[in-house]
Amino acid sequence: MLKKIVKSSEFVTFTIIVLLSLIIGIINPAFFSLATVFDVLRASIVVSIMAFGLLLVIIAGGIDISFVAFAALASYGTHMFLLSRGYNGGIFLYYAIACVIGLGAGLLSGLIVTRFNLPIFDVSLAMMTMWYGFIRFFIGSTKNFKLPEGAVGYYSRFLVTVRDPFVGEAGLHFSILYVLIIGVLIHCLLKYTTLGRGIFAMGGNREVAIRSGFNIKGTLLVVFGILGVLSAFAGVTHSFLSRHFEPTLFMTQNLDVIAAVILGGASVTGGKGSVLGTFMGVILIQLINRAMVLTGITVEWQQLMIGLVLAFFISIPAIRDLINKRASRAVEVPEEI
């Protein structure tokens, strides 16, 4: 059992997180504080929620890049609509409307993919281009900073706050609870439902999944629906945390989210991945971001470091394969016949 845990890719990610934390902490002891933990967690909230949705698609054997556009469409669309109606209430209605829009956009992609047997990547490319164009042409092309009164204080609604000698007051934003709840739900979906096992099955061997009687098209529709809803949810959350709505929300960040899912141990070819791993992948990226600042590497070199860590990480399985190939030859030829 222990051997199995050590061999898992989640463990690799976890080890890297621990090692990285230790190194940063030794160089800069200020790192070991609740404030840092809160900060890293807060930065992970939105990315995690999107990554959980994307995880399902990647396990099913596809790669989607349009989920960022779902987030932008749902959050910005909802905001501009409610703004025009003079809405001044709380955040709940935002979530409700945005999730419906996200669901619709997700299902549309899913329908096109399943109806016309198209590769997920190709369709998502078209949808992403289309939706960002749609938002900016039909809805609006400028950022909007006017928040409804009912949601003004949202960004500083903390679960707990601590006093930190370096950063002053630091708090853990309560939307981390969303990550927890959504994470547990997705985990249960993947692990304890026939649908979830179907997602793994089709990512592992699509032909056999069809032959075994899995409803591939239905499964894909659900996956896209969830992706749409979670992206919309993340979009609204992000907009309130950053106190503005933008039409090009997350436009260039889809690859970062994909990177986080992959760092978390999911396989680009499908059939493999976990919620816990994905969350750790997101944390790892945030940690690398902070490592630069805290260890004195200036912010300009951050991206290079992320790239190098990523290059190192993705080479591990390939190198492991090379070694295995060599080792597999070493099966003994019996000395005597």
Binding site: T194, R197, F200, A201, G204, N205, G213, G271, K272
Partner: peptide, 16 residues
């Protein structure tokens, strides 16, 4: 299914 465990492969059809 190469990515699923032995147990699950054995039972998956029945599950379905």
């Amino acid at each position: 299914f190469p990515n699923l465990s032995v147990a699950e492969n054995l039972v998956i059809n029945e599950q379905l």
